[in-house]
Design a protein around this nucleic acid. Structure first.
Lengths: 140, 140
DNA sequence: TCTATATACATAGACATCTATGTATCATAG
DNA sequence: CTATGATACATAGATGTCTATGTATATAGA
């Protein structure tokens, strides 16, 4: 019997996942960070020196939002801004040593979250889940 | 092949769903309303006169957040506050006539959203989706 | 009855996020 | 080469959400 409550459940899972992220980071001594900050750092671990615009696209937030998020990461000492010499309009966001040191923490938090999300499902169900979510996402 | 991107996809779907809600409400001439306001009205359609505390629990927001959300709904003329006579600490939130007139709009928006979420899935897949989401939710 | 604790809501301040706009730099047409 | 439009980022103001705290009312114990 279909309950048509997927929207509600997805919203609840999103909130719960964000709370896991914040709580786990806190356990590792990382505070004053929201998931969006984590998203930025995670993309920088994959490719350091991304521009504000590129980061905005990747984390799906507007550019002014990213400017503010980066302000905070700078203040916390995790990243620094440098200008691109070919085009000084562009700001590269670069990890600091302190920022790089957080990489294993983010890996652990990510693993912990995925264990919660996927842990109760067998392989077939995990594939079903991803396939269904992917199809829903494409329907928007 | 599992991609471990359920968290990301769920977050994207949540954002997209919220955007559908805001956009559809706008098409029906309802503006300055966010999904949380809609959640409050939806619960009031089921049971009018809920208290601030009850609403906070139902929409999974903190009590001060609900106070502010209700402030706005009052300002927009959709609800009004009344005190409970048995316990004057308690504020009942009651729909106004203008608020009740929105009920069919919310029903349409909800239908539209569910069509987007469920429309590309057959019956079996819809049941799979809800079952998987439900199990994930319980694992938190 | 009077005082202490609990409860319900409101208020204040912080912060993430948005839209709108400003500022500086780049590219290009004349 | 200069002026005009485009682009990248920052700033300002609004709003939803949170935590911390205040205020008023209810309840319970002395």
């Amino acid at each position: 019997m279909i309950k048509n409550n997927a929207a509600s459940m997805i919203s609840k899972i999103r909130d719960a996942a964000n709370q896991v992220i914040v709580t786990e980071l806190h356990k590792h001594g990382v505070d004053n960070i929201v998931p969006s900050h984590g998203d930025i750092l995670t993309f920088l671990y994959q490719q350091d020196g991304l521009s504000v615009k590129e980061l905005a696209h990747k984390i799906r937030r507007k550019q002014p939002t990213v400017t503010v998020l980066v302000d905070k990461l700078v203040k916390l000492g995790y990243v620094q801004r440098t200008k691109m010499e070919e085009d000084t309009r562009v700001t590269r966001v670069m990890l600091t040593e302190k920022g790089r040191q957080l990489e294993p923490v983010f890996r652990e938090v990510s693993d912990k979250l995925n264990k919660t999300l996927y842990g109760g499902l067998d392989n077939t169900e995990q594939e079903q889940l991803e396939a269904l979510l992917d199809r829903i996402l494409r329907s928007f």
